[in-house]
Design a protein around this nucleic acid. Structure first.
Length: 882
DNA sequence: TTTCTGCATGGCTAA
DNA sequence: TAGCCATGCAGAAAG
């Protein structure tokens, strides 16, 4: 205490017989003043005594009393007016009193407000409160006491913002949230009226229908609104305890961006207005609106649309308190029509009515379906009701629900008493969440009438049809649109979850939206591309490298990226017209629709490759890589293209095998694919380490539905013989084809042996037999020619190298073999003479050429002990091909 | 049969 | 525990 000095800069004494408490400090305490200075402060002559020579003096707009603006010592003695200028507190009080005397609601209003003041007095704060502005009497009366009646008075109401911050410091109870309260005052200030267009000093006790715009018939009923409520509750909800939880980051920057639920501007009704209905509009939005429009935007309340609200029933349930506070009084259940302008400037007429409900009333707006459809609102979106002053015109804004928004709402509702995020312990996060559109609809409404002004809005305020974002974060809208609202609602939000999404039949879903919903998030993710020409930064988290981009991803055509063994990468895209795959440069980002005609980088065309068969630009390994990577992201149709590639791969592989028998056992791309899927961990046994189920799959994740990921980690033993999954069917088709090949080869050998035997036995005399053999050979040659012709015409699933497409359609010729009832293994193991065999095959419609191929492939397959054993089928055990 | 209307019900919230 | 409110439901009206 001995170190005290008078905080009057012009005094600075450290000795006084009595220390007095001065103005409140930001630290929560009070200035130490010596007796003389303190006395001057208490007598409101501090500045007159010590600051006469300092700048900042202005005159009260009414009494011309000199006021030292900008000085903390006089801070509580003046108010900044809404329309400029300053006024002393006494003038502001008298002005409000005068205004209220002319309003018949004054008595109740004052009584209610004084009730609040009484509550505040219990906190040892001396106040006399009238209207929304406190009257300073005594030392600590400097704190403003705000009520929802923000617009009462002459412009004093909200004019004190600059002084509010520090004046709030006077309250010892608020010391823990000093700056936060400052911020809160600037945003959640109940007096939101930016009465830029209202003459100063004019009585502006604006009620939504004071001008009768909503419904002229209700004009005279305005006073009765206050009796409308049936339950008496405090008119002012607890102010959001923003300061208790707001993050430092929040408090530091972008204050004007905070979307804080604002207490309602007027407390006409006695009913407590739940904070969840407090309108959330940033000061920036309001300032922009009011500044451009030269009028007052008075946010009234907002409501998150429930499924019922957004449903086809066309009834929007209004919060009782809001309806009674801001809408005309209705005594009859039929209610009255209410004119509300929507976001596009269209004026709607809703039936505002109620029905009795448990000795209470349930207020609804009927006929809102067209309007909601017009605004494309859905359950979970927020509809806002505001008023334009002067005029009292009701307007509807909206705010599209986003994930963050819903989370915010959910958090809001999850809070005790439904307090908004401002009361939440996570307010620092939630309050800072960028609203998607905010009052964009409102802007849009006003833009129509104030185009020149709105042109001056910043870019993010330029509004187009629909819900153009207030912030750039609106990009998320397109993505979150796929999410049903309930998807992002936390579990804790049971009621909201139930309300929003439980009744899908009540949700209005346009067909286009339904189509959009068919896109899974995985598919959507596949369409996302890193922003072009933006280099990512690599971040390593727990030994995993992540690419971080400063720019949001962009949508593009789905392409396939393949890796060359040499280290390079390729990009492949499928033409939307011909479905052919085209090779593209790596850095190309295709539009959603892309055709060959757009292929300015034309280099390799897979179809050309297929026809040429032997092009060496793409090695076998590359093709396998292409297949391996590509199949993961192919849809069913695209897989057909990939299957063709498989044919090429096999044909190329066969050539390699012929030249290098040691590689015969190495499975092809499909081998590896199918084997990996079926064998799971045993895949490595097949000598294809590059195809792993879980390790090498580029996008393997829970929920992935690709051919690999749909299989269990260890497919062996989990696939019954009757399993018809993709992999099993693929394996079966391949097995069937291979069996045919083997049989054909064996038959050829038998035929050769028979021919040799016949030649030996009937040497010199078997002209007839020889001719028969020649005929058969000719027949086979003829059939082979036919096959070649069909092959060239694409009628047979056979590659250019003469090999059967192992993945051709089972309904096609080669696959129909099995459907003839011929047991392949029986054929393979048959020792019948060639004639019988050929007759049977020909009776089954199998060409000799095909038989040759079947025998050959079967032979190769049956020698593949590893393959058969690995799939769990014995050499002589035929799988269930049906 | 569908939609509309009015009311009832019950979960949830705030006092 | 009172009251709010989302939603269900039955009867009426309309198509």
């Amino acid at each position: 205490m001995g170190s005290r000095i008078c905080m009057n800069a012009s005094c600075g004494t450290a000795t006084t017989h009595e220390w007095k408490r001065g103005w409140p400090l930001r630290s929560g305490g009070y200035a130490d003043l010596c007796y003389n200075c303190g006395s001057a402060y208490e007598n409101f002559v501090f500045c007159n005594t010590f600051h006469l020579e300092e700048p900042g003096w202005r005159e009260c707009y009414l009494c011309r009393k000199r006021l030292h603006c900008g000085c903390i010592a006089s801070k509580s003695l003046l108010e900044l007016l809404d329309y400029g200028g300053v006024g002393c507190t006494s003038c502001s009080i008298s002005s409000r009193l005068h205004a209220m005397q002319r309003d018949e609601i004054r008595n109740e209003f004052v009584a209610l407000t004084i009730n609040d003041a009484d509550n505040l007095r219990s906190k040892s704060v001396e106040k006399t409160v009238i209207g929304d502005t406190s009257v300073s009497i005594g030392q600590d009366k400097r704190e403003d006491v705000r009520t929802p009646f923000g617009e009462v008075g002459t412009g004093f109401s909200s004019a004190t913002q600059p002084s509010v911050g520090s004046s709030k410091l006077a309250n010892p109870d608020s010391r823990s949230m000093l700056d936060i309260r400052d911020m809160h005052e600037s945003h959640a200030h109940p007096s939101l009226s930016m009465s830029l267009g209202v003459p100063s000093g004019s009585t502006n006790f604006v009620l939504p229908f004071s001008n009768g715009t909503a419904d002229g018939r209700e004009q005279s009923k305005v006073p009765s609104h206050f009796q409308q409520g049936q339950r008496s509750r405090p008119i002012l909800p607890k102010p959001p305890k923003t300061g208790l939880s707001i993050s430092p980051e929040t408090s530091k920057g972008a204050v004007s961006q905070l979307r804080i639920a604002r207490p309602p501007v007027e407390g006409r009704g006695k009913n407590h207005l739940l904070p969840r209905y407090w309108p959330r509009i940033t000061d920036q939005e309001l300032q922009q609106l009011s500044g451009d429009l030269n009028s007052t935007i008075v946010p009234l309340f907002e409501k998150v649309l429930s499924a019922s609200d957004a449903g086809r029933i066309g009834r929007l349930v209004l919060p009782k308190a809001c309806a009674e506070a801001y809408f005309p009084h209705i005594s009859q259940s039929e209610g009255l029509p209410l004119r509300i302008q929507d976001v596009k400037g269209k004026e709607w007429v809703f039936q505002f009515r109620f029905w009795p409900n448990n000795n209470s009333r349930m207020y609804v707006l009927e006929g809102v379906t067209p309007c909601i459809q017009s605004m494309q609102l859905r359950a979970g979106d927020t509809i806002t009701f505001s008023r334009i002053d002067p005029g009292g015109k009701l307007i509807m804004g909206f705010r599209k629900a986003t994930t963050s928004e819903e989370m915010q709402d959910a958090q809001t509702s999850a809070l005790p008493n439904g307090a908004p995020s401002g009361e939440s312990s996570v307010s620092g996060v939630t309050e800072n969440l960028p609203a998607v559109s905010g009052y964009s609809g409102l802007f849009q409404t006003l833009k129509g009438s104030k185009e020149p002004h709105m042109n001056a809005l910043p870019e993010q305020l330029s509004l187009a049809d629909g819900d153009i974002g207030w912030h750039k974060s609106d990009n998320h809208e397109s993505i979150t649109k796929e999410e049903s609202p309930q998807q992002s609602v936390p579990n804790s939000e049971k009621k909201r979850t139930r309300n929003i999404g439980s009744k899908s039949k009540r949700l209005l879903m346009h067909s286009e939206e339904a189509l959009e919903l068919r896109l899974t998030w995985e598919e959507a993710q596949d369409l996302l591309r890193p922003p072009p020409s933006v280099k990512p930064s690599i971040v390593t988290i727990e030994d995993h490298e992540f690419e971080e981009y400063d720019e949001p991803p962009v949508f593009g055509k789905r392409t396939i990226f393949t890796a060359r063994p040499s280290g390079g990468q390729e990009q492949w895209a499928q033409c939307d017209d011909c479905s052919k795959w085209r090779k593209l440069p790596m850095d190309v980002l295709l539009p959603p629709k892309w055709t060959c005609s757009d292929n300015v980088w034309d280099s390799i065309q897979v179809q050309h490759f297929l026809s040429m068969g032997e092009r060496e630009e793409m090695s076998q390994k590359e093709l396998e890589n292409l297949l391996r990577v590509g199949r993961d992201s192919l849809n069913d149709n695209q897989e057909c293209q990939a299957d063709i590639l498989v044919t090429v791969i096999d044909s190329k592989k066969r050539k390699i095998v012929e030249s290098n028998p040691a590689q015969e056992r190495e499975p092809s791309g499909l081998d590896a694919l199918a084997s990996a899927a079926v064998l799971g961990d045993n895949a490595g046994d097949l000598g294809e380490p590059s195809v792993g189920v879980t390790t090498k799959h580029p996008r393997h994740r829970p929920g992935c539905t690709c051919i690999v990921c749909i299989q269990p980690p260890s497919g062996k033993g989990k696939h019954k013989p009757t399993c018809t999954c993709n992999v099993c069917m693929t394996v079966k088709r391949r097995f069937k084809t291979l069996m045919l090949r083997k049989k054909r080869r064996q038959s050829e050998r038998e035929a050769a042996e028979l021919a040799q035997k016949d030649r030996n036995d009937d040497k010199g005399e078997s002209e007839t037999n020889n001719s028969t053999t020649r005929n058969e050979s000719m027949q086979m040659s003829h059939s082979e020619n036919e096959m070649n012709q069909k092959r060239s015409q694409g009628e047979v699933g056979e590659s250019s190298s003469g090999q059967i497409d192992l993945n051709c359609d089972p309904n096609r010729e080669d696959m129909q073999i099995g459907e003839t009832g011929v047991s392949l293994l029986t054929l393979v193991q048959s020792s019948r003479p060639l004639e019988n065999y050929m007759q049977q095959q020909q009776s089954n419609g199998l060409s000799s050429c095909l038989l040759q191929q079947v025998n050959g492939e079967n032979e190769r397959l049956m020698s593949d002990e590893g393959f058969l054993a690995s799939v769990g089928w014995g050499r002589d055990q035929e799988p269930n091909l049906d």
